[in-house]
């Protein structure tokens, strides 16, 4: 019975299972787990956007931390320095970051392959330097503290317990929206551009516009995540938005199998857990991420999630073969 359900509706079941597990975790009373899962949820939003761009549309970005950081800084500066309502500041951050992605997208996507990788890398580094150097606005390397909490009608998202549900609410919304887009006319155009740009164009798909739109969407996701991150910490500094984080995001998407939204969320979780485990060893985590990236690309180019899913499918179909 249960296995039959698993076979027929794996996705719906997975969503339900995820929601149930996520809903329960904070009640376990382990503050550490809750805080790690908050960060995972925030990273997952960025990873899902990168997965749409890299996995579905086939365009690499080595600078996605820039959009994440831009969202965080705009929210922090507006709400802290200019006393704008934090939700409005977040909305402004998302709009501005999306507009920024549109603006850089058209020139950047004139490039392909390695050149595109270099340009996005450069973008990430430039913004990171701006975050550090424009002291008067960003507070420089030491950042800005005293960013306000988010609140709704007097209800403050000031505890981890509350913030946890806020973050995962956003994250699941982003996942559901992304799944719908991928299955839609737009999603087909994205995958077509990935498959063969020339064929897609011959059918009326304007590849440049598709790429820029996906970049803008992923930038919007990153800005939501960055804003939530800064309201969670009530603090912002350049360090979380450095090149290493851009690379980590790519590793998350790759571990998740690139063209899988679920995979990206799983990847975000796996990488975060791994870096928590490696924390005592300091800089060693960089080496491990590099190795992980290589191993996954070589052994299961479709990602760990797909690899595990294949095993699972084999198991289920063997077990249920007679009922078919």
């Amino acid at each position: 019975m249960v296995l039959a359900l698993v076979r027929r509706r794996p996705k719906q079941l997975a969503i339900a299972a995820l929601i149930v597990v996520l809903a329960i975790v904070p009640f376990l009373g382990n503050a550490y787990y809750t805080s790690v899962l908050i960060i995972i949820g925030i990273n997952a939003m960025v990873a899902v956007g990168l997965c749409l761009l890299m996995g579905y549309t086939g365009q690499v970005s080595l600078g996605h931390a820039a959009f994440y950081g831009l969202g965080a800084y705009i929210s922090a500066v507006l709400s802290r320095t200019y006393h704008v309502n934090p939700w409005l500041a977040m909305l402004a951050a998302v709009v501005a970051t999306t507009a920024f992605a549109f603006a850089v997208g058209f020139p950047i996507f004139r490039l392909r392959g390695n050149y595109l990788a270099m340009a996005t890398l450069g973008l990430g580094i430039i913004l990171w330097i701006l975050f550090r150097e424009v002291d008067s606005i960003t507070g420089g390397p030491s950042g800005l503290s005293g960013v306000p909490y988010l609140s709704i009608a007097g209800f403050n998202f000031s505890s981890d317990f509350r913030f946890y549900y806020l973050v995962w609410g956003f994250c699941i919304a982003i996942m559901v929206i992304s799944e719908s887009i991928v299955a839609s006319r737009m999603g087909r155009a994205m995958r077509a551009v990935h498959g063969s740009e020339s064929a897609a164009q011959s059918l009326g798909v304007n590849a440049a516009v598709v790429k820029v739109k996906v970049l803008a969407l992923s930038a919007a996701y990153a800005a939501v995540a960055g804003s939530l991150f800064t309201y969670y910490l009530t603090f912002v500094s350049p360090q979380p938005f450095d090149f290493l984080f851009s690379v980590q995001l790519v590793v998350m998407a790759v571990v998740g199998g690139l063209a899988s939204i679920w995979g990206a969320v799983f990847g975000a979780g796996a990488i975060r857990v791994l870096s928590e485990v490696l924390h005592p060893f300091g800089e060693l985590d960089v080496v491990v991420f590099g190795l992980l990236l290589m191993v996954v690309m070589i052994l299961t180019p479709q990602g760990l999630v797909r690899g595990i899913a294949d095993l699972w499918h084999r198991f289920v179909s063997v077990r249920l073969a007679p009922t078919r």
Binding site: R188, R191, A192, G195, L203
Partner: peptide
């Protein structure tokens, strides 16, 4: 040829109907 190899046959034709 240049089909979109990772998409279903139906989806390939549906991209043809993009416009």
């Amino acid at each position: 040829v240049r089909l979109f190899g990772n998409m279903s046959v139906l989806e390939n034709v549906m991209v043809g109907l993009h416009l």
